[in-house]
Amino acid sequence: MSEPTRTSQSTRHATGPAGAAARTPAAAVAPTSRHPLAAAFRVLITTAALTGLLLAALATTGPAQLLTRFTVQAGVASVLVSACAAHRAWTGRRPVSPRLTGALLPFLWLPALIHHAFPAADSTAFTLPAATTPGVTQALCHQLLYTVVPLAALADWLLLTTPRGFRLPYAWQWPAYPLLFLALTLAFPATSGAPSPTATTALSIGIAICALPLTAIGIDQVRPAPRLHNNRISPTGISPLK
């Protein structure tokens, strides 16, 4: 016979309705907390990322080859994660795991950092291919994928999520795929249709890949908690004061 689950002293001796309430999981009785403003903001992030991807497809002669670019892969991840987060905020379900939302931040900021701060690396597989006829479409696409979406994802994290959700193991988990992608671009540059980065450029990208997760985790540990609506008026468990 299995050993009964240990409970608190007050729960073990409680009987009647009070005992039943004490043994009921908090998630089963807690009221649904919906966040329509957060949901609307995340829908805007989804729309901006999806628009940028569509414009990128229109600005190039080989839309299928875009899937081999890191910027496009990060944009697709942004669409999926932001749409899921918007749905959960609207319906009051549990938020998306910080493991996913946190990984999205360096994924979006890496190509943005390369595009704005490393002009020599702007022709690598981490960025978008050059358009056949540069114009308004390409400029708007770059603004959305390199500026608007990363900044919006940063604002969503800082203003609409609770802090200290990132864990130290994420510092080596999040860079795993970008580092693998960098290794593949060095070993097989023809697969992405972009020239292989030089040793200096590859080193700069590798440092950025490792530094962005550490920066995000460090900021998450010290940033203040946003004032989110909280429906809980008392702690769970049996207490004379309710």
Rank of each mutant, 00 (worst) to 15 (best):
P134L: 14
T162H: 05
L228G: 06
S123E: 13
P134E: 12
V148G: 00
A194T: 07
A199V: 10
A225G: 12
R94I: 01
Y170F: 13
G193E: 08
A125F: 04
A211L: 14
I207P: 01
L128V: 03
I45F: 05
T161E: 15
W172C: 15
P195D: 06
A48R: 01
A117M: 12
L37F: 14
Q65S: 10
L168Q: 09
G206S: 15
P134I: 13
I205R: 06
V76M: 10
A139R: 15
A38Q: 11
L50V: 00
C84M: 06
I207T: 14
F126P: 00
G19S: 02
L55R: 02
A139D: 12
V222L: 10
P4F: 03
H229F: 11
H35P: 00
Q65A: 14
G218I: 08
P189W: 09
L44V: 14
V222I: 13
A21D: 10
L80C: 08
R99G: 06
T101Q: 07
A59L: 08
I205L: 05
T51R: 03
T236A: 15
T68E: 13
P169L: 09
G135D: 13
T5I: 08
L140I: 12
S82Q: 09
A176L: 15
M1W: 05
T162C: 06
A39T: 02
L128I: 01
W174M: 11
R12N: 11
L168W: 15
A225N: 13
P63G: 03
I238M: 03
A103Y: 01
T124A: 10
L100D: 00
A183T: 03
R223Q: 10
Q73E: 10
A152N: 00
A130S: 13
T24M: 11
V76K: 00
G62V: 07
P129A: 09
P226V: 11
K242V: 15
A199K: 02
L212M: 13
L145Y: 07
P240Y: 04
A27L: 05
W174N: 02
A18M: 10
P95Q: 05
A26S: 07
F181C: 07
A28E: 14
A83F: 14
T60E: 04
R232W: 03
A130H: 14
A187W: 13
T47S: 14
L100K: 04
L184V: 08
A38S: 14
P189G: 07
F181D: 06
S2F: 09
A38F: 08
I45Y: 02
L145H: 07
P169R: 11
P106R: 07
A176V: 08
P31G: 02
H229M: 06
L160T: 12
A152H: 05
W157E: 05
A77F: 02
P224Q: 09
A208Y: 03
P36M: 11
A211Y: 00
